[in-house]
Design a protein around this nucleic acid. Sequence first.
DNA 1: CCCTTATGTTAACAACGTGAACATACCGGG
DNA 2: CCCGGTATGTTCACGTTGTTAACATAAGGG
Lengths: 170, 170
Amino acid sequence: MSTSEKSYHHGDLRAALLDAADTLLDQGGDGAVSLREVARMAGVSPTAAYRHFADKEALLAALAARHFAQFGAALGGRPLAEMGPAYLRFALARPGRFRLMFGPLLQRSRQHPALAQASDAALAGLYAAAPSPDAALRAWGLVHGLAHLMLDGALPAEEGLITRLLNPPG
Amino acid sequence: MSTSEKSYHHGDLRAALLDAADTLLDQGGDGAVSLREVARMAGVSPTAAYRHFADKEALLAALAARHFAQFGAALGGRPLAEMGPAYLRFALARPGRFRLMFGPLLQRSRQHPALAQASDAALAGLYAAAPSPDAALRAWGLVHGLAHLMLDGALPAEEGLITRLLNPPG
DNA sequence: CCCTTATGTTAACAACGTGAACATACCGGG
DNA sequence: CCCGGTATGTTCACGTTGTTAACATAAGGG
């Protein structure tokens, strides 16, 4: 029952590809994920991924969906006051994942139903925790904007600044 | 004095390349700007750009700097209440420019002094208009986050939503 | 047992960023 | 006025990427 049987077929290539892509994403950011490098990591030919994903975007969408599930589970059910800092810390700790999940790919999530469903589920927790829909959107917008500004170097990514900005006087 | 003399030398290739890149940026977003296509538009060989820019990133940095100057001039000197909506409307009207200016390129702006200076100048206006530095950062974070969420399709880009979220009750 | 289907491979193509070597135009000093 | 250096553009080349088409092999059910 060795897990590394060397057969023509891989066993679970799909998962292996997603894992490899994940590694690249965390290491080098969004642009560092190439299909060929992913295949290389999985020990497979450059075009093998096309048996499991329609194209590169589909692979990334599946990966984003996986992360949305995890992200939603980590955030769900908490008080609103904790969600802001948690959201920001996630973005700063895992920039690649954050940019993938909330980046331009999200716009095309209608082409990737799994992504659409996963992101909707994750974000439902946010609405549930806020006193009003508008308050939820304002809180979301604030932390989301600060996350981007810090990731892009427009603001320093300091913990003190985070807590100060997220706890307005009054 | 015809402006389109066909000589071996172009006349002002640098500006022509920036203009071409700008067109591509506005049409197809960040990823649609390729050095080769830019050169094609300027009617020049694929490697001609290297006489004016160290590499692709340098071209994009110069373009971003140009837009920061324009952006800063358009925003500067206004009351704070107007700046939020103006910022958001700019992002929605010109997603390519917005993403380029505030994207990952900004992180490397130390390698591109012109960019660093232009962005600093543009953002000084923001700090000047706010009652306190923290208030400036919160306002900036909010509009910046809403801009990204709308651009990425997480929120509908409706004018009504914008004015509602930017004018909290009280 | 064989045949269908799932899965992986090889070969190929066009597009990209970029470097090296070469060509041509321009411009200032003799 | 010419001539040589420098700025600017070209050609050729290389390695990388996403993707398609044609082929090969393994797996599993009638």
